[in-house]
C-alpha cells in the first residue's frame, strides 16, 4: 500500500507535467484552430504540413550553407579554437599552384566529359530511334551501366588500366604487338582514363533522355520536310536538333554539374596517390575531401567548397544563358 501511494505521488506530477508541456499546447492549438474560418483553416493545414520540412531545410540545408561560408573565413583544425582569418583562406588558394592545377583539372573533366558524352549519346539515340529490331534489348544494353555503382566500376576499370602482366587493356595491346600504355601512370593519359568510366556510366541515362526527346518531336514536321525533298542532314540540323533544345539544355546542365563534381571514380582509381600522378587527376571535390578530412584544415577546405559553389553557379548560368538564347 505504501508503495502504491508513493507511485501515485510520483504519477500525479508526472502526468501533470506531460499535460502542461504537450497536451496543453495541443489543446490550445486545436481550440484556436476550431475558431478559424474555412480558408484560414486551410492555411493552418498548409503550415502544419510544412513545419517538419521547413525545420529540415533550415537546419540541414540553410544553416550548413551559412556555416560553410562562415567557416571559410576562419582557420580551424578541430583541435584548437577557431580563429578569424578574413579572406586569407581565399588568398592562400589563389597563391597555391596545386589549386590552379585542380581548378584546371575540374574544367578538363567538364570540357572533355560533357561534349564527348553528349555527342556519343545523341548519335546512339538518333540511330537507335530508327531501329525496330531488338530495340528494347539494345536500349537495355546501353542503359545497364547507368545502374552500376561508381565505386565498383572504378575498380573494374582500374584493373583494365594496369600494366602487364595484370591489366586487360595492356594485355590486349601486348597481344597485338603494340607497346603498352601507362594509362593511370601518366600525367597526360590519367585524366582521360579516369573520365572514361564516368562517361561510360552516364551514357545510358543520356541515351534514354535523348530517345524520349526524339519521340516527342511531332511526326508532321518530318512529313512536311519529306514532301519538300529536304536531305536527311538538313532535317537533322533544321528540325531535329532545334526541337530537341529543351532536352539538350537539360542534359548539358545536368551532366556538366556531374562532371564538375566528379569524385567517386578519381578517389577509387587513385587510392595509392589520391588525385595523382602529380595531381593530374585531382578534381576540386577530392581536394576538399583531402584538406578537410586528412589535413583537418576545416576553414581552408570550406573556402574550397565556396569556390566549388561559385564554379557550379557560374557554369550553370552561362550554359542556360547561351543555350536559351540560341
Amino acid at each position: 500500500m505504501l508503495a502504491q501511494d508513493r507511485n501515485r505521488q510520483i504519477d500525479r506530477p508526472a502526468t501533470h507535467r506531460v499535460w502542461r508541456t504537450v497536451g496543453f499546447p495541443i489543446w490550445l492549438y486545436l481550440s484556436w484552430y476550431r475558431s478559424r474560418t474555412i480558408r484560414q483553416k486551410r492555411v493552418v493545414w498548409a503550415w502544419t504540413f510544412l513545419s517538419v520540412p521547413l525545420l529540415f531545410y533550415v537546419v540541414i540545408r540553410f544553416y550548413p550553407t551559412a556555416d560553410a561560408f562562415w567557416l571559410s573565413l576562419h582557420d580551424w583544425n578541430l583541435l584548437s579554437d577557431m580563429e578569424w582569418a578574413g579572406m586569407s583562406n581565399f588568398g592562400r588558394l589563389a597563391a597555391d599552384p596545386e589549386f590552379w592545377q585542380v581548378f584546371w583539372n575540374t574544367f578538363q573533366y567538364l570540357l572533355l566529359g560533357t561534349p564527348i558524352s553528349l555527342v556519343i549519346a545523341f548519335t546512339i539515340a538518333y540511330y537507335l530511334d530508327q531501329v525496330r529490331f531488338m530495340h528494347g534489348f539494345i536500349r537495355a544494353l546501353y542503359f545497364l551501366p547507368f545502374l552500376t555503382t561508381a565505386v565498383a566500376m572504378a575498380w573494374v576499370w582500374r584493373w583494365f588500366y594496369q600494366p602487364v602482366p595484370v591489366g586487360v587493356f595492356n594485355n590486349i595491346l601486348a597481344e597485338l604487338g603494340i607497346a603498352q600504355q601507362p594509362f593511370l601512370r601518366s600525367t597526360s593519359q590519367a585524366l582521360p582514363s579516369v573520365l572514361a568510366p564516368a562517361i561510360w556510366a552516364g551514357l545510358g541515362f543520356q541515351v534514354i533522355i535523348f530517345l524520349a526527346g526524339l519521340r516527342a518531336i511531332p511526326q508532321s514536321y518530318y512529313e512536311a520536310a519529306r514532301i519538300d525533298g529536304v536531305s536527311r542532314l538538313t532535317i537533322l540540323w533544321e528540325i531535329t536538333i532545334p526541337l530537341l533544345k529543351p532536352t539538350i539544355v537539360f542534359l548539358v546542365v545536368f551532366s556538366s554539374i556531374g562532371f564538375l563534381r566528379i569524385f567517386d571514380h578519381v578517389f577509387n582509381m587513385t587510392t595509392n596517390d589520391p588525385g595523382g600522378p602529380l595531381n593530374s587527376t585531382e578534381p576540386l571535390v577530392l581536394m576538399i575531401y583531402d584538406t578537410a578530412f586528412n589535413g583537418f584544415q576545416m576553414g581552408y577546405a570550406a573556402a574550397q567548397t565556396v569556390v566549388l559553389f561559385l564554379v557550379l553557379l557560374v557554369v550553370s548560368l552561362i550554359q542556360l544563358r547561351i543555350l536559351r538564347d540560341r
Binding site: P64, D67, T305, F309, L312
Partner: peptide, 21 residues
C-alpha cells in the same frame, strides 16, 4: 524559391558543416 534554391548548393559544400553537426 527557398527550397528550389537549395538545388544550387552542391552536397560537397555541405559535407563539412554536416560532419561538424
Amino acid at each position: 524559391i527557398a527550397i528550389l534554391s537549395t538545388l544550387m548548393i552542391p552536397t560537397e559544400m555541405l559535407v563539412i558543416p554536416w560532419y561538424l553537426m
